[in-house]
Each structure stands twice: as C-alpha cells, then as structure tokens.
Amino acid sequence: MTPILELQSLEIGYPASKDSQHALVPAVSLEVHQGDFIALSGANGTGKSTLLKTIAGIIPSLDGKILLHSKPLQSYSAAEKALLVSIVLTEYPEDQFLHAEDVVAMGRYPHIGFWGIMSASDRHIVAQSMESCGISHLKGRRLVSLSDGERQKTMIAKALAQDSPLIILDEPSAFLDYPGKIELMQLLKQLVKTSNKAIIFSSHDLDLVLRSVDQLWLMAKGQPLVTGKPEELVLSGQINRYFDRDGLSFDPLLGHFIPERKKGWMVYVNGHHLHAKWLNNSLLRHGFLLSANPDEELHVACETETFTIKYKGKAYICSTIDSVTDKLMQLCANEISSS
C-alpha cells in the first residue's frame, strides 16, 4: 500500500534571516497510511503547529520533501491540493450571517463549478457530513451563535465534506471542556474507521491522546521527532524525556504528570480498586509518596466502606478518604515533633 503522505528529511521552521535558516527540529522522515489515526504531541512551542501547517502547504518547508500520493506537494495546484488535504484550524470565521450549513457546504467548493452551485449529490454529501458529526440539528444556526464544541464539529464536517483522504487538525481539543474532548476523539476515531481516511491532529493534552490514538508523534525542542504506539513511548520513557520540565515527571503508573518530589512519607495502599485509586490521588495531592513495598511502615488497606491505617503496630479505622488523609498527616506531624 502506498502511503498517503510521506515526509522525506523534512525540515520545518521559519527563515531566521535572508541567509540563515533555523530548523525547529532535526529532519523528519515519516509515512502516513490510509486509516491512520495520529496525534502529534509535545510541549507548547515545540513546532507542532509549524509541522502541520507545513504538511498542509500553508507555510513552506525549509528543506526536504513532502510527498502526497508519491508526488511532491509543490507539484499540485491549489485546486488539486484541496482534494487531497483538508484542514481544521483553531481560528473561526466570525461573519455574522454565516450559517453552519453554509460553512459545511463550502467543503464542496473544490468539487463544484465556477458559480458554486451544488448538485443533489453535493447536497447529499453536505447533509451526510453534518450527520456524521452529529450537527444536523444546527443546520440553520449562525456559526457565531454556536458553542466552541459545536463550531469545532462544524469545521470538521466541512473537512469531511471536502472528502480528502487526509485531514489535518490543529489543536482541535484546545477550547473544549473535558467531556467535549472525549467526544471529539470518539468522533475522529469513528471517521477514521468508517471513511478510511487518515487523520493527524496536534494536541498538548497528553492524557487525552494517550487514551485515544493508535500512533503518537512526539516533538520536543531540537530533538528528533519520535513515533510509536502510546504505550511503547510511555514504557520506554520517551514521554518523560519529551515533556521534560523541571519539577514535573510523567508517572507511568498513573498515566499523567505529577510534581517531582524527592522527599515525603512513603505510604503503601492496597485493597479495593476504585477507592484505592482515589485515595492515591488524595495522598499525592497532600505530598505523600506512593510505595510499591507491602512492608512499608505506613500502610492503608481499602475496603468499600472503611479504610484501615496500620502504623507501628497500631490500626486506625477511617470511613472517608478525607479522614484517612487527615489521620496520616496527623501521624506524620506527631512523628516529626517527637523526633
């Protein structure tokens, strides 16, 4: 199967001055195939947006090649490119009387004639695109009156109506609330599955991408772009390296970032799955460290309704996560004052 998109030693960035050019990251070589669902992640300012805009042909590359269906990107006219790549950006049209349906219909523009008159089949595709994104009921609404999430879906429906094999989204989850983000990921995944398109999106929301995508591209300033399955990148420690920030580290056990703490009381928690998870959460928030050692001095056993703290041969029974945390903090405070 030939790849939809191929990057060969691509260098991205903005020309620093007339003579010197400054590439943001070392040359990138990659392939994207039909049905790929890819997240491009990295800290802010590492060049995610620049890479996506370069691939979409919005800004020129510094060096290297971008091949769309085995042909260089530059060899396509603007009209031909419109049939191969569609984009969804963070910016929205702000026109007062632009209706959701008009926006989606413009996705058909590369396919239709000079006057922009749509055939019945074009109108059908527009309706279907809106249906797929779950926004059929917003048809006659003005874009400015929609919520961020609804507007985002409208722009995605536009990209869908454009019917290109590759869709690129720049920070699509940026302005959405958390359930909105999950819903978006589900929608994109569904589109990849049913239409067999390739989708690449950028996001600095690592939590979200780890649980959503099949393939992750990681970028960090000046480092080579690494790719892999999310799980591989976590286990190999790449995530930690690529999101390097003082005082923070990625906890592979929890699947998110926690403040790095070198000192703190070690607590071993075992027992009922859900309660243990949220007790961990509370303990970390209060500065305790989680231990994997069952012989730890501080030990909490969780059951559905009760928590039993064991410390220096004594047992304390608590009924809420809050009281466990309080009790542990009290025990630690006593320990400090007695020593």
């Binding site: 979409a56 006219s77 603007a78 490119k81 419109a82 049939l83 984009i87 049209p93 413009m106 523009y109």
Partner: peptide, 11 residues
C-alpha cells in the same frame, strides 16, 4: 469568509 487559510485550503 472562512479566513485566508481555509480559503487557500479550499483551492
């Protein structure tokens, strides 16, 4: 109306 970037992407 969609903005210059969207317009360019539409050909």
């Amino acid at each position: 109306l969609l903005g210059e970037r969207y317009a360019a992407n539409l050909g």
